[in-house]
Nucleic acid binder design. Structure first.
Lengths: 261, 261
DNA sequence: CGGCTTCTTGATCTCGATCAATCAGCGTGG
DNA sequence: CCACGCTGATTGATCGAGATCAAGAAGCCG
């Protein structure tokens, strides 16, 4: 561990700047000029990383900031009044948390780290006033929200029309694309969430998840042991997922060794 | 037919102003001052009403405007590549259409009038520049999008965890609240959509919808004939729907008038 | 190493999709 | 104005996929 000169063990997080963040091209500051980026950087608050299982905030907490995932991953869980919990979202690096809370000013669910995770806090009132003066930022904010709405629609289609195999295929293709987007290999990664969470999220029993995964392995679509995932036949999985318009940038499955792009 | 003095048969629609619109308190201009309202009113384009079955736009059309429903109702339908269609949304008066298209700049589905329907067109680039100078409008836009995201989450919960009876109950409660919001009776209304659309939207077969409706009538929860709906026991239906935080403003079914927390 | 959670595998059973047929509503045109 | 024909709605009967129940295996943590 490098020893920071100024004291606090979190100094290095406070030091982190959007300008040097590897995700800045994917995150909100996307397409911001140097000067605007400075302004944006100024309103960000860095936080000590969350431990696995720790909550970023709780259901019912009042909303004041959105958060950008810097590293790690989180899940959003909503408790209904019978105490049933529903996993409604997973968040990966560069993605924004809390956009769904602006309307009610209350967080509609828990957001919990699935592993050691760090996030940037972006106070919403500051973000809003910055959006007033930086059209690029405003547009990007609209885009982010709009994109999330589109994703939600896809999820609704998945839940209401797809059979379990298709759901799980969609889920993995979606994860793969998002991992690729932030620089990881799309075909080899470690699942951040438990089978339980996947099942809950996809509206399926855990047992069903297990059985389908078994089937996927038999069919040589993927290799899984524990949480270690290797997608062997991306095309076939994608076809099964019926994911239209989904394109793997570089590392399309050549049924061979290129999986680690 | 009244004869408009200026010629075009659509003149009266062009005349309509936000200031005199009964929905202005629910729609985007919500909470705008008189002057801001003027500016907002200036960018709106009125349109000739759509006939039943007519498309406001088609899937794949490029996006340039959002629309506010003035009267009538519409459905959003997405066609996947196998030609399967999925109803993803219903739009009632005062609600905004097209917010999910900002990100891709392409409409992800057809939006089709369920009855004679009129809408206001709001060019998005104008809206965005107006949002730059009117913080209230910007915030309202963020809120609208955020609210839609929250609604989507609820829908996802409905689809992945609720049994058919609960889904249909939720659907009716939701409709009732939205009708009430724009001034109609929450407990007596005419369904704008076909059973088919409801089933598709809720991820259920039409036959299932029919059977459950039959059951609801037996249980005295509601009276339905054709598309004419009367909710007889709002509380019971609401309980069944497990709709938390849903409050009927005035006309709560007073089986016991205290249910309001 | 032991106790816990997480994951897998097997057996049963239920609920809703599907198929099939009939009925009702409604707009159209003779 | 009524008969026709279409689409949309209801009702019945059957079947299968996935939830559920139950048990065992494998990680994973202190």
């Amino acid at each position: 561990m490098p020893i920071p000169s100024t004291g606090s063990k979190y100094t290095r997080f406070h030091r982190t700047r959007c300008q040097t963040c590897s995700l800045s091209a994917l995150c909100l500051p996307l397409a911001l000029g140097a000067q605007d980026m400075d302004q944006f950087n100024a309103i960000i608050r860095r936080r000590a990383p969350l431990k696995k299982g720790e909550a970023l905030f709780c259901q019912g907490n009042s909303f004041s900031s959105v958060f950008a995932v810097r590293s790690g991953s989180l899940k959003q869980v909503t408790l209904d009044q019978n105490g049933e919990e529903q996993v409604t979202h997973f968040y990966l690096p560069s993605e924004l948390i809390g956009l769904d809370s602006i309307s009610e000013q209350i967080h509609p669910g828990y957001v919990i780290a699935l592993e050691r995770t760090s996030v940037c806090e972006i106070p919403f009132n500051h973000l809003d006033s910055l959006a007033e003066h930086i059209p690029q930022l405003r547009l990007q904010l609209f885009r982010s929200m709009s994109k999330e709405m589109g994703d939600d629609r896809r999820m609704m289609r998945l839940l209401s029309r797809k059979v379990p195999d298709e759901r799980l295929a969609s889920f993995f293709i979606n994860l793969a694309m998002r991992f690729q987007r932030c620089g990881y290999s799309p075909c080899s990664f470690r699942l951040p969430m438990a089978r339980n969470d996947i099942g809950n999220y996809l509206g399926l029993a855990v047992e069903t998840i297990s059985r389908i995964l078994g089937r996927f392995q038999q069919q040589q679509l993927m290799a899984i042991q524990g949480r270690e995932v290797h997608i062997l036949d991306f095309e076939a999985l994608n076809t099964l997922a019926e994911t239209q318009g989904c394109q793997l940038d570089q590392a399309r499955t050549r049924t061979s060794s290129d999986a680690s792009a």
